[in-house]
Design a protein around this nucleic acid. Structure first.
Length: 733
DNA sequence: CTTAGGG
DNA sequence: CCCTAAG
């Protein structure tokens, strides 16, 4: 099979789109050429092709079986083929790998110049660096003569790390490909991955962050940077933080990635991520970053990204406004997928990092909590943007509507019933509700405390956090929330309400930790001034490393500690750091079941008190007369099956109180008076069953027969002082 | 989960 | 109504 698809990756971040085909218009070719000329800065070019075929250039049609590349010009590894590519200056050899399965991984790496000459003839490349490529993994081949490392994951993903920065573009590099990706790309729609670090895009930049085309100031790269920070990701183990390495440092050998991880990666669709980087490019506050891409390219990318990412990114991000620098940054939950993808793009991101070495997040706070790449990404973000503060992500799966009591005549129509219910619901939702926050089972009453102060932080207790909807007493007007809150939740002084005990809420809200507790306002958070606080904490259930969209890198490296050394950016970024928190974030990112610690997190509210009506008492008495006092479950089923709010324990308790009530003087009784007739029956019944119970104990074997069994319920027992209706009385609520 | 009881 | 030990 011939793959027409190929991917070009520019280590510099410059990408060469596939040459236009001959069939294409001259105009397009010119355009193509022009573009490349403009991007001469690119020092290194990596060409990767997956799926068994490598197209070195349009002229040389690659066939799966043979090496089309001219010797000396390109090297490609095909499934079982060995290609050699020799550059005069830097010979690159790639030994064939034999991967059993479908020939997949191909990649070519070489000085861009070579590439330019032979393969992409038109592209001027400045290749000066030597890259060592090494394939780790199944393919495990070494490519010598180059200074980067490859990691091949499974049969699909290749990660490249550069040890050395390209001359002009220190730190830029790399990428990961998956065969899938390759397949996905057609020449027509070349996949262009930008190694460049997207400045500050959020992961799902696609959704919220404006594409950076405009942000790209110019094509030239900064030349004065010597330091390259590279973050290498570790293996599957996650938890890495990005740590920048100075360019002089060599990257540590890329750890191998287990299949498991590979699968994950694949699943995450790395390749999809790649495009994002590009898109994600955001203007760099410092202006340090200079995107190499042109608008046109961006256009490409954008298009592609759109195509490739049909799926919507997390809604979560959607909320974040573009302005919100960090809104998209966090990865978690759902995001994990995207994050992981990013991970795949390690190389690219790392390059990004390098560029931004100067930017280092001062605050490692959030970092530590991150897993793998994600954290690193954050780092990057922070550096460039002002860090805000950690965010707590909570998901509220649903709110249960507090119990509604509706009274309606039996003669009412169903329609009127519906309207009645609607009105009740509307009354509640329209200002009759407020949100209660519970932490560790305790209600958080102080709305003015920050989440952090309250103990709600990104790295803890999320599972012990609960929310509840409470009826809002009319006396307390909704204070904070103007109508904008989508939920129309009003907040006011939190008062424990017993009604909503069952509300189960799981948080999944992305909340800045410095927000006040009273997110009742719907979760419209009010950000407090928190200049210093900056952490992007995110909790994710997913072990996957995350990479921030910025391309900041993250690595889950074992030993690597994130080294935010460079603070040069700090000052610049700080000012920006605190941005208004968008009202968004309500979206759920990660799903964090709040009910895990049922005891603690679950709402501990006491149930609302609901006095038994006379009718209920009647039903209860009747049922107990028939069933006895030791079969509350049956009583429930028989008479209160439809009264969801009455548990058998409630019935038992009520019986207990009825007995007590019957025994005390009427003056001592409280509440709705129960007809004496009923109380008398209560006493009679109680006495009867007590006796039965006693006799049963004395002579268990015989007693059983005497006791009215449920089955025999229809027939009144001769001993029973009452007549029983076989059907019983169902209380229907 | 049910019961039975104390709180 | 809640909480819980027991079964």
């Amino acid at each position: 099979m011939v793959l027409d698809k190929r991917l070009h990756y520019g280590f510099n971040g410059y990408q060469f789109p596939p040459m236009p085909r001959a069939t294409r218009s001259a105009r397009r070719r010119r355009s193509f050429k022009k573009k490349h000329e403009e991007n001469q800065m690119c020092a290194f070019d990596l060409l990767a092709i997956v799926a068994g075929n490598l197209l070195l250039d349009k002229e040389s049609a690659p066939s799966s079986s043979n090496t089309t590349a001219d010797k000396d010009q390109c090297a490609a590894v095909n499934s079982n083929v060995k290609y050699e590519w020799q550059d005069e200056e830097k010979p690159l050899k790639v030994e064939a790998c034999d991967h059993g399965s479908a020939a997949r991984n191909l990649f070519v790496c070489g000085p861009s110049q070579v590439h330019g000459q032979g393969c992409s003839s038109k592209e001027p490349l400045v290749a000066q660096n030597n890259l060592n490529l090494r394939l780790a993994s199944a393919l495990t081949k070494k490519v010598e003569g180059v200074s980067s490392e490859y990691r091949e994951f499974g049969d699909c993903i290749l990660e490249v790390e550069t040890k050395r920065a390209v001359k002009d573009e220190p730190g830029k590099f790399g990428m990961v490909l998956s065969s899938n990706v390759a397949n996905a790309c057609s020449l027509e729609d070349p996949v262009v991955l930008d190694a460049k670090p997207p400045a500050l895009a959020s992961l799902d930049s696609s959704a919220k962050v404006p594409l950076c085309r405009n942000h790209i100031p110019n094509s030239s790269y900064p030349t004065n940077r010597d330091d390259v920070n590279v973050v290498s990701r570790d293996d599957d183990e996650n938890s890495g933080c990005s740590h920048p390495i100075t360019k002089k440092k060599f990257f540590r050998p890329a750890p191998r990635i287990g299949n498991r991880r590979i699968r994950k990666i694949m699943a995450s669709k790395y390749w999809k991520v790649a495009p994002r980087f590009k898109d994600g490019t955001v203007s760099n506050p410092d202006g340090d970053l200079k995107p190499v891409f042109r608008k046109r390219k961006n256009y490409y990318r954008q298009q592609r990204s759109e195509r490739l990412y049909p799926f919507k990114k997390r809604k979560h991000y959607a909320y974040s406004s573009p302005s919100n620098s960090y809104g998209g940054m966090s990865c978690n939950g759902d995001a994990s997928g995207s994050c992981s993808r990013m991970h795949g793009v390690t190389g690219a991101s790392s390059s990004f990092v390098a560029q931004h070495t100067s930017l280092q997040p001062r605050d490692s706070h959030g970092m530590r909590t991150f897993n793998g790449g994600a954290s690193s990404s954050f780092v990057g973000q922070r550096t460039s943007f002002q860090p805000r503060d950690c965010h707590v992500k909570l998901r509220i799966k649903s709110f249960r509507v507090p119990e509604l009591l509706v009274e309606i005549p039996e003669s009412s129509t169903v329609g009127s019933l519906k309207r009645t219910v609607m009105e009740a619901v509307t009354a509640i939702l329209g200002g009759g509700l407020r949100v209660g926050v519970l932490l560790q089972g305790k209600k958080v009453r102080d709305d003015n405390k920050t989440l952090l102060q309250t103990g709600i932080s990104h790295n803890n207790q999320l599972d012990s956090l609960g929310f509840c909807l409470e009826p809002n007493h009319s006396r307390t007007p909704p204070s904070l929330c103007p109508g904008d809150s989508p939920f129309l939740l009003q907040c006011d002084t939190p008062e424990p309400l017993s009604r909503v005990k069952n509300a189960k809420l799981l948080a999944v809200i992305d909340v800045p930790m410095d927000l006040r507790v009273d997110f009742c306002s719907t979760f419209r958070f009010v950000s407090l001034p928190t200049a210093d606080v900056v952490c992007q904490g995110i909790c994710t259930g997913s072990p996957e490393p995350h990479v921030n969209n910025l391309g900041h890198y993250i690595e889950s490296d074992h030993d690597s500690a994130s080294s935010p050394a460079d603070t040069s950016m700090d000052k610049s970024t700080n000012s920006k750091a605190l941005v208004a928190v968008p009202a968004m974030n309500v979206e759920a990112l990660a799903v964090i079941p709040a009910h895990r610690n049922s005891k603690q997190s679950e709402i501990v509210q006491r149930r609302i008190r609901r006095p038994f009506s006379v009718a209920e008492v009647e039903a209860l008495v009747q049922a107990v007369e028939k069933l006895g006092t030791g079969r509350w479950r049956d009583v429930k089923l028989r008479a209160f099956d439809n009264a969801k709010h009455r548990t058998y324990v409630d019935l038992k308790d009520k019986w207990k109180t009825l007995v007590h009530t019957a025994r005390i003087s009427p003056q001592q009784r409280r509440g709705e008076p129960v007809p004496q007739e009923l109380l008398d029956r209560v006493l009679t019944t109680h006495a009867y069953w007590s006796q039965q119970q006693a006799s049963q104990q004395l002579k268990p074997s015989a007693a059983g027969r005497d006791l009215p069994s449920p089955l025999r319920a229809g027939g009144a027992c001769s001993n029973e002082p009452w007549t029983v209706d076989s059907e019983g009385f169902q209380i229907d609520f």
